[in-house]
Design a protein around this nucleic acid. Sequence first.
DNA 1: GCTCAAATCTAAGCATCGCTTAAATTTTGC
DNA 2: GCAAAATTTAAGCGATGCTTAGATTTGAGC
Lengths: 216, 216
Amino acid sequence: MPAVKKNKYHHGDLRQTLMDISVDIIEKQGIHALNLRSLASLAGVSSGAPYHHFADRAALLGAVAQEGFEKLQAALVREGASVVGNPSERLAALGSAYVLFAVSHRGHFRVMFRADIHNDAHEALTNSSDRAFQLLREAIEACQQAGTAPPGDPQPLVLCAWATVHGLATLCVDSHPAKLGMPPEQLAPMITGLTSQMFSALARTATSSKSPKPSS
Amino acid sequence: MPAVKKNKYHHGDLRQTLMDISVDIIEKQGIHALNLRSLASLAGVSSGAPYHHFADRAALLGAVAQEGFEKLQAALVREGASVVGNPSERLAALGSAYVLFAVSHRGHFRVMFRADIHNDAHEALTNSSDRAFQLLREAIEACQQAGTAPPGDPQPLVLCAWATVHGLATLCVDSHPAKLGMPPEQLAPMITGLTSQMFSALARTATSSKSPKPSS
DNA sequence: GCTCAAATCTAAGCATCGCTTAAATTTTGC
DNA sequence: GCAAAATTTAAGCGATGCTTAGATTTGAGC
């Protein structure tokens, strides 16, 4: 029974418990519905207890965002390791994984990209997102070497792919499902597949034309 | 001097004044920094006055979002009317206008796509965004007819373009400028131009191949 | 020009929420 | 075991969203 210490003055792992409940509330009711008093109540502690684990509400949300970025990176690494196809398929799979992470971790995702949460201070947080960005860059550079993405500076391609995937994720997370016309599980592979197809198509026209730069 | 009625019991146009100040605060300090007391103080009225123009804080933000969507649609229509080039250039110009609207109206943009603001109720709001979506669809269908976008169901292309442009806008609005490598005024045309180029490239391969569907 | 209803605003206050402080309780290192 | 450190409680301060009751102004109709 005592998988978690109960009926004790000290809570088993209050810090993680608070984060878990927060994610649940944010997923179901949005960030605005999260207040520390009811959160503490749900965790079974007094309203002052959370402040010994988080400096303030923003720090709690920052920790949730941090956890989200770590989970996202893990999901992308897992997906990248499991896809054995060509670089284009790998790129599309990575993009789909990004979108599907967002819809299956709405609570985390809603916090991760809120500028008013992690303003400046959190370096560890930006580091985590940078690593995810780096994975995308590597996947695109692999496409370039395979000839399924236009050659030249990869930065425009990376930003384009990132923007597409991130925009699609935000749309899936916050829009009414009917507006998109199909469930994210179907939509994500379609759009990311389309994008990687377009990279290939542009690579073909770029190599057969005079201008090798994707920005031309 | 009395361009706006002053020193009178009734404020000239308190409703619009409150919205204008709100946009300014949100742009400079974020949504979290907006509270109705200091807002009323800045407008020179008592703290209860705003509630005669907005039911609550969410209604105020909803009105700001509504105004933002109207301005966005106007900006897109203006851009669409001024571009005389081919459909591909028009599509790219529309996309750039979307991104540049976001960065030059950060206050509005930050509110427009917050699910926790306009949850359900505001029909007029979704109507405004739907019209912007419709403009994009028409631009893409024009590309299809001109042969500079792959034929078939335009919905995947529309969603892809929307996601790209919307993702890029959110990145430009909330990310540190250094992370993007160049100012939005330069970045937006580059990415939207790249996307319309890719539509063209895919159209060429699609027409010369057996599968006409962009989703294949 | 007067009257009275509607619209607008003020003043005061309630309830909630973020956060702090001081003390009580439990755990942990030695 | 014991003292120090960590965790929690209880109580409360200040700020903020929102409400209520009443005062002031405006404007439409006679």
